Simulated assay, not measured.
Amino acid sequence: MYRKGICSFLVLSLSVSLLAGCSLLQKPEQLLSGTIEADEVPIVAEVGGLVEHATAEEGMHVQKGGVLAEISKRTYEAAVNEAEAAKAQAQAKLDEAKAGSRNPSVQKGIAAVQQADATISLQDARAKQAQAALAQSQEQTTQVETQWEGAKKTLAYQESRLKEAASLFERGAISKKDYEAQQEAVNQAQTQVNQLAAQVEASRSRTLSAQQDIAAALAQKGTAEAQRKGAIADLDLLKEGSTDYTIRAMLAAVQQADARLDQAKWQLEKTVIKAPADGILLRTSISEGEVAKQGATLFTMMKADHLKLKVYIPEAELSKVKIGEKTEIKVDAYPDEVFVGQIQSIAEKAEFTPKNVQTPNERTKLVFAVTIRITEGLEKLRPGMPADVRLLTEEGER
């Protein structure tokens, strides 16, 4: 009897040891979580006027160059006709004055001055256009930054409510459904913060680009002005009396008429609002019969094939992650489907785990942000969807 007890005890101990060993060898699968995001592109009215046609609707798939809306052209067509007539009149006077001189060298000198004048006018127009774009981008940046700050405050508020809800849930004071609803509110607030942060970055980039365009236009204008001075000096040697001043004045009149005509044509072209890229319209802010103000955002679109999500990799695991590696993505909306993504970038600097991670221990860890570009399932996935990510290596699953 005693031997049987000893044997039973040894068998039981061996079984427990084997089970414990198995549990140590089999590490549970660890998924990374994130929220799907999209790059939003504002479509702005570059001229103002009555919207006569607006065929675009929210959720519509659009192609680059596709017409979204049309602003009344009547005023702008009249401006083009007036500018063309003014140019023709100025050119006729110049041709008449030039016909009075038979010297080919004088004609060549006049052409050089005229070319320099045209270049100066063109750079002036470019500088003015860039200045208008700069003012518009600065205004948009201010608006988006204000919205961003508001979204961050909302996120902080929702996070504090989630902390309270977690405490209540642990005590059984609220249901799991209420607790998860608050978690979803935090996720939505975080998505809004991320989207507005991307808009702020894009707006600041447009501001910098406009500043660079202004500097380039002014530099080219300075070069043209120097060339003009040299051309005028050469022409002065070839001409006598007041004839030179008369022709120069006529050259200036033609150049001015050219600039006005270019501006009028540009404004007429901008009455047709077109999609800047392939994508999906997320929001519309104008309807037929409304008056569009210059600089106002008429539509907001999401570029096609530009869905992404961000996850955080612990510092100890960073060496196992490489740009270009594939990932598996799952979302609650399609529980039986696996979508494919590819690691697009890895942050250069570490940061503490974001506050929306639930466990305090996890929030104190250093992590690196990893951005994943979604390559499959773009027709099903939508911005704001929570997603679970499993990283893959070239040899197979991680």
Score class of each variant (00 low, 15 high):
164 E>W: 02
261 L>N: 10
48 G>Q: 10
127 A>F: 02
73 K>L: 04
92 A>I: 00
132 A>W: 06
66 G>H: 11
309 L>E: 09
304 A>M: 03
318 L>Q: 05
322 K>A: 12
91 Q>F: 01
368 F>R: 12
313 I>K: 00
282 L>D: 07
20 A>M: 08
159 E>F: 01
320 K>W: 01
146 T>D: 12
85 A>G: 07
301 M>T: 04
178 D>L: 09
392 L>A: 07
188 Q>R: 12
140 Q>G: 13
170 E>Q: 15
326 K>Y: 07
398 R>F: 07
133 A>E: 15
37 E>R: 10
362 E>C: 01
29 E>P: 00
379 E>D: 15
316 A>S: 10
140 Q>A: 15
138 Q>H: 06
364 T>L: 11
248 R>F: 03
370 V>S: 02
28 P>Q: 12
83 A>H: 09
67 V>N: 12
162 L>N: 09
234 D>R: 11
208 L>H: 11
205 S>W: 03
392 L>H: 03
244 D>T: 03
168 L>A: 14
205 S>C: 02
320 K>P: 00
30 Q>G: 01
349 K>C: 02
184 E>A: 15
65 G>K: 05
361 N>K: 13
211 Q>I: 05
105 S>V: 05
8 S>V: 09
220 Q>I: 00
381 L>T: 07
366 L>N: 15
38 A>Y: 05
179 Y>R: 11
336 D>C: 01
168 L>K: 12
237 L>D: 09
13 S>W: 07
